[in-house]
Amino acid sequence: MNRFWEKVKTKNILVIVLVIFIGIQFYRPEIKQKPITGEIHVPSDVRAILQRSCFDCHSNQTELKWFDQVAPAYWLVADHIKKGKEGLNFSEWDQLAPPAQNAKLWEAFNQINLKAMPLKSYELLHPEAKLSENDIRILKNYVTSLAPKQKPDTAKVSAYNKQLQQINTIHTAAPKPSVPTALNGISYIPDYKNWKPISSTERLDNGTMRIIFGNDIAVKATKEHKTNPWPDGTIFAKVAWEQIIDSDGNVTAGAFKQVEYMIKDSKKFASTKGWGWARFLSPKLEPYGKTADFANECISCHRPMKDNDFVFTSPINH
């Protein structure tokens, strides 16, 4: 008697699973087919790599395999493509200004170089997308060729002098009534100037130089080697300036470009990896981001450091 019921049960379960499996095939979130409006123009060897390894999720030329079409894999693929195109789309490349295009390519290269891209789950089912050492070298040479050549430039000097004048007028004018606030609610923190620097960087990819400031909690955590994860209350401010170079190869800080913050609060900012993210541009401190979820861009760039609490900087004790 028991055996009989067991048989029935097994059969029923199989039937139920099959019915569900067929059923879920009818739920198909649309992968929008959009036209190629302004494609990226790169040397043919670079293009071949991008097409093979990136285009499925980062262009309007998605080529799905038969197994990508089967739910629930299809749902995952559809989601990857949607998010992928939001961050980087080689078919709508002309929508970005040339400096933004360069920044995207350098970021893409670094994501690949740090093995964060292509996504491991994608690579597993699409082994042809995996980049060889040679592919990586081709991309590296290409992005290197895009780096701005640093040479004495009077335009940079005058941009710096103009900012200096502006700052001095703001300095003497009445204090501003409100603090600039980004769309995610994070405000500019003027006090960063009084914090300690924890490191600095020279960026050859975009011709800037940076100082990363840390508040007292960050400095204490560095002293105690408690940096992974960083404690709640940690704040970093990364300030970027243009490079001004003289004929002897001395580089000094030119025009102020931006200040970026990472504010650690594992509860408040749980939905954005435990950090609050914001960027304020130019001495006018214009908040970056067109929508409240602009922090997705910050996170995707910092994702290769996910095992290091999303922080690139290795801090220096003073």
Binding site: P197, H225, N228, P315, I316, H318
Partner: peptide, 30 residues
């Protein structure tokens, strides 16, 4: 990951932070 950039760090005995200085500027020599 390097939790601290040890090679670049100052010896604790120097106590640089005790001078309580702020950042003025930075520069690079190519």
């Amino acid at each position: 990951y390097e939790p601290v950039n040890e090679n670049a760090s100052l010896p604790a005995s120097f106590d640089f932070n005790a001078m309580n200085l702020k950042v003025v500027t930075s520069s690079i020599n190519h």
